[in-house]
């Protein structure tokens, strides 16, 4: 089983994500510089957080139009797993791999704090280690994370912001996302997930929560089951 973490100019969570995958989850993981392209096939591709191209134009807009994204699109169409975290989620939205956009927070400041999320769909390649409607704690860190759907589209939500009891309230929706959605599925088999919260920052108890680890565990489980 081999994962790839793609580094763009301005990515800054690439090493953190790679460390969690290799040292905590225990899978092989290459850090791939976007200009090098994918030189082999991978079971899963992760677009990490950061500020690719300084968020110029719109967050993720420029990275979404680099040639490696064509390879990642082909991988997704074939059913390969693609996870976009924070800036990676913005890149997936800008590249059309999920529908809708993540844009300026309703109150336009950078928010960096722990958030409660409710698991909205449990039987997926990314959430099979969770119970439906389970409440988890994963940090967010973004200024452009407000989810806006494409008009008339049906959205399959992975996670919604909620309070500690799992109730969706205005107060627990920190960036004003539509219907509190902060994780969105795409791909032919829900094999693409774009999420604003950072699971790699919640993968070891020393960081306050290991709920995010179960997203990577879910991916590894799905890949293992699919291979058998």
């Amino acid at each position: 089983m081999r994962f790839a973490v793609i580094a763009f100019g301005g990515s800054n969570c690439d090493y953190d994500t790679q460390k969690v995958l290799t040292e905590v989850i225990g899978v092989e993981c290459d850090r791939v510089w976007y200009k090098d392209g994918l030189s082999r096939s991978y079971d899963a591709i992760i677009l990490p957080g950061g500020f690719s191209y300084g968020d110029y134009l719109r967050a993720g807009a420029i990275a979404a139009r680099t040639p490696i994204m064509n390879q990642i699109r082909d991988h997704a169409i074939r059913g390969g797993l693609v996870l976009g975290i924070c800036n990676g989620a913005q890149i997936l939205a800008e590249s059309g791999l999920i529908r809708g956009v993540f844009t300026r927070n309703a109150y336009p400041k950078f928010i960096c704090r722990q958030a409660h999320l409710r698991v909205e769909t449990a039987q997926t390649p990314f959430t099979n280690r969770f119970k439906l409607h389970e409440v988890i704690s994963v940090p967010i860190a973004h200024a452009e994370g407000r989810y806006v759907p494409s008009e008339g589209d049906e959205v399959t939500a992975g996670f919604r912001f909620c309070d500690e009891k799992g109730v969706l309230t205005t107060e627990s929706n920190p960036n004003g996302s539509w219907e509190s959605i902060t994780g969105v599925f795409g791909g032919p088999n829900l094999n693409v997930l774009a999420m604003m919260p950072h699971p790699e920052r919640a993968s070891e108890m020393i960081l306050g929560s290991s709920d995010g680890k179960r997203i990577f565990d879910s991916m590894a489980h799905y890949i293992q089951v699919s291979a058998n």
């Binding site: 134009l57 807009a61 956009v101 844009t103 806006v148 494409s150």
Partner: peptide
């Protein structure tokens, strides 16, 4: 269409 605008918003 290809870069400057995002047709969703």
């Amino acid at each position: 269409q290809r870069l400057l605008a995002n047709p969703v918003i």
